[in-house]
Simulated scan of single mutants.
Amino acid sequence: MSDHVVTVTLNPAIDLTVSVAGLKPGAVNRARAAQSNAGGKGINVAGCLADWGVPVIGTGLLGRGNESAFTAFFRHKGIEDRFVRAPGETRTNIKIADTETGETTDLNLPGLTADAGLLQAVETVLEETVLPGTLVVVAGSLPAGLPARATADLVARLNAFGARVVLDCSGPALAAALLAEPQDLPAVIKPNRAELEAFAGRPLRSTDDVTAVARSLVRRGIGLVAVSLGAEGALFVTAAGVLAARLPPVPALSTVGAGDAMVAGLVTALRETLDPDALARRAVAFAAAKLGGIGPNLPPRADVGALEAAAAVSGPADIRLGLSA
């Protein structure tokens, strides 16, 4: 088993986060601050893992036209850069963070167009990098030009290499991956409630509803289904049972990347073979720790540890979901 973790980001982005006190649609809004970061779900996960001291290899697709933001980020974090370069520019995502409400409005711009040749180049990197037992995070959306099946096919290929795949995506790509043959399923998935509802094709109005769908996926062969529920915490479903974890309210500067931080927390817990209770604490602590800052960064390790200690872990009945999605 290799010591490093591999993250795969096929559709990264430069995240431009603009902070506004009280966003007013249709009016002139004066920004308080703006910050640009290398982003994309897998890259965000890699940044948090690197902050925790985990050796990380990042791969996926990057546009040559604006790669400098990413190369600087990888160098700063100590992430090994094995991204495949493509003509053009990586997309920019604009995040409008309302400091009064804690809500974030996303404007995601189009990015690179990929083809089978570029995807094959990424798979070649993975074949050269992944050893049996390697934790591989496949995260985020697909670029234009690739079919929804591409994520599922990539997971199947990684399984053939002996990887332990942690998947965090949404929409048709997630559905295709979850409907794959049992041997081609990811080991771990981290949907949020809305993503699980989209897959199920119906509202999931209660904890029992969410748990039932998660359990059906575990029965199909997924080892762990971690469902993030925002301020309500998260549910962790395995064949052994269901745990709920949550933290006291934490002031949020930006919610961008909290789910990615949760994935990083899960990966560190799996890498350290933590028990289910400790895994749940670690995952929600990483997510909460991320709320206090902008960009794919964790606060000092002691701060994350304090959040782990403060987390409440219980049965799923202790979480009460609202009726909205």
Rank of each mutant, 00 (worst) to 15 (best):
T92Y: 02
A121T: 11
T113K: 10
L126S: 12
V137M: 05
V125T: 00
L61G: 06
Q120C: 08
L142T: 03
L62M: 10
A97H: 08
G111W: 08
A121Y: 04
P132R: 03
T129V: 03
A116R: 00
L62I: 15
L135A: 12
K77C: 05
E103Y: 02
V122H: 01
L62N: 15
L131M: 11
P147F: 02
G140C: 05
K95V: 12
V137S: 04
E89M: 10
G63H: 00
I79R: 04
E103F: 03
Q120W: 05
F70G: 15
E123C: 06
T90D: 15
P110R: 02
A114P: 05
I57D: 12
S141T: 03
A97F: 03
A144N: 11
F83N: 05
H76F: 12
D98A: 11
G65K: 02
R91V: 13
N93A: 14
L135F: 14
G140D: 04
L109S: 12
V122I: 01
E128S: 08
T101Q: 06
P110W: 01
R91Y: 15
T90N: 08
R75Y: 07
G111E: 08
R91K: 13
E128I: 04
T90Q: 03
N108G: 08
E67M: 12
N108E: 06
E128G: 13
G78P: 01
P147Q: 07
G102E: 14
T113L: 14
R64N: 09
P132V: 14
L135G: 01
G111D: 11
S68K: 12
A121E: 07
H76K: 11
T101E: 13
A116D: 11
V136I: 12
P110A: 10
R75M: 09
E123V: 08
I79H: 04
D115R: 00
T134Q: 13
R82T: 14
L131S: 15
G58V: 04
L118S: 00
P132D: 10
H76D: 13
E127I: 07
A116G: 03
I57V: 05
R64T: 13
R85P: 15
D115T: 06
L126R: 02
G88N: 09
L107C: 07
L107S: 12
A116K: 00
V84F: 03
G111S: 05
D106G: 05
L118E: 10
V125M: 02
R82G: 01
N66I: 01
I79E: 04
L107W: 02
G58P: 08
L131K: 09
D81Q: 00
R85E: 11
G60T: 12
V130A: 02
A121R: 01
P87C: 03
L119N: 06
G102Y: 09
T105F: 10
E80F: 05
K95D: 15
L118G: 00
R91S: 14
G60V: 08
G58S: 07
A69C: 15
G133A: 14
E80T: 13
L61P: 06
T92D: 12
F74L: 12
D106C: 06
G58N: 02
A72C: 13
L119F: 03
T105Y: 01
R82F: 13
L61K: 00
G65Y: 04
A114D: 11
K95L: 13
P147W: 03
G65E: 15
L118M: 09
R75W: 10
